[in-house]
Design a protein around this nucleic acid. Structure first.
Length: 248
DNA sequence: AAGTGCTTCAACCGCGAGCAT
DNA sequence: AATGCTCGCGGTTGAAGCACT
């Protein structure tokens, strides 16, 4: 308090809401090349119409390479429950004990799954002689069972080789680009990379990502910007964003 | 098939902490 | 010591997807 909170950004003229694949690509590419010394200055330098806070959040929670995507294992859930019992809503502290997991993700898991489960367990334990606290209701998979989209990730075919695409990104990154001209480089050169077209065709065919009713160029561009490399943040993005292949 | 309600989770908001000046 | 600035955290929101009717 009394420390004069500066507005995180001028909100006018900045994008808000869901990140587009192109924005993700810009952010990833910029951070891979220049790092993120100053979040406030980053979006301008990277040519992003986002506030620094938004960039930071996107990177931390979603794009950084060491993010572990996918559902939480039983062990992870047990850890969360234990640590929450000790620490309360100290999500970042809890997250530090779960490598690859973010505070935001843990918070969501707690609020959507674990809290409810504990509650129902408490209720059932008061009426049942066998109180079992922690465990997912779905032992067949390492996901908490609940409704709908528990299985949000698809399994990428093992023969997919992301390295090719990653190489082209590396080539781009090897070019000494002034941040001011970053815009043009990303959008033109990279978008023209021929091998990406092959990737797209391959992915669409293999994964049935799109129905062919003319989803439009934008949708195609989505995938184009999304597939980067195994273990790469964008692959994680891919998992999330295209988790429910539409039946072809 | 369409409508409605529920669930999930990515993203936003506001605040406090901590560092620099 | 006071002030300004950035970063990180935790709470909350709302769009999208899903299940149910």
């Amino acid at each position: 308090m009394g420390r004069g909170r500066a507005p995180c950004c001028e909100k006018v003229g900045l994008n808000r809401g869901a990140w587009t694949p192109e924005e993700d690509m810009r952010l990833i590419a910029y951070i891979r090349k220049f790092g993120h010394g100053n979040w406030r200055a980053l979006p301008k330098q990277a040519g992003l119409l986002r506030c620094g806070k938004s960039c930071r959040l996107r990177w931390i929670n979603y794009l950084r390479p060491d993010i572990k995507r996918g559902n939480f294992s039983i062990e992870e859930e047990e850890t969360i429950i234990k640590l929450h019992g000790l620490l309360g809503n100290k999500w970042s502290k809890i997250a530090s004990s779960l490598p690859g997991r973010t505070d935001n993700e843990i918070k969501n898991v707690w609020n959507t799954h674990l809290k409810k489960r504990l509650k129902s367990n408490e209720q059932s334990s008061s009426s049942s002689p066998t109180p079992t606290i922690v465990s997912t209701a779905n032992p067949d998979q390492d996901t908490p069972s609940s409704s709908s989209s528990e299985t949000t990730s698809i399994s990428i075919p093992s023969n997919l080789d992301f390295d090719d695409f990653n190489d082209s990104i590396d080539e781009i990154l090897a070019i000494d680009i002034e941040p001011e001209v970053w815009n043009d480089v990303i959008v033109t050169e990279e978008a023209e990379a021929g091998e990406k077209r092959n990737w797209l065709a391959y992915l669409e065919e293999e994964l049935g990502l799109f129905d062919d009713n003319g989803a439009g160029d934008d949708d195609n561009k989505m995938v184009e910007m999304v597939v980067v490399g195994e273990g790469d943040p964008v692959t994680s993005y891919f998992h999330k964003s295209y988790s429910s292949p539409s039946p072809v």
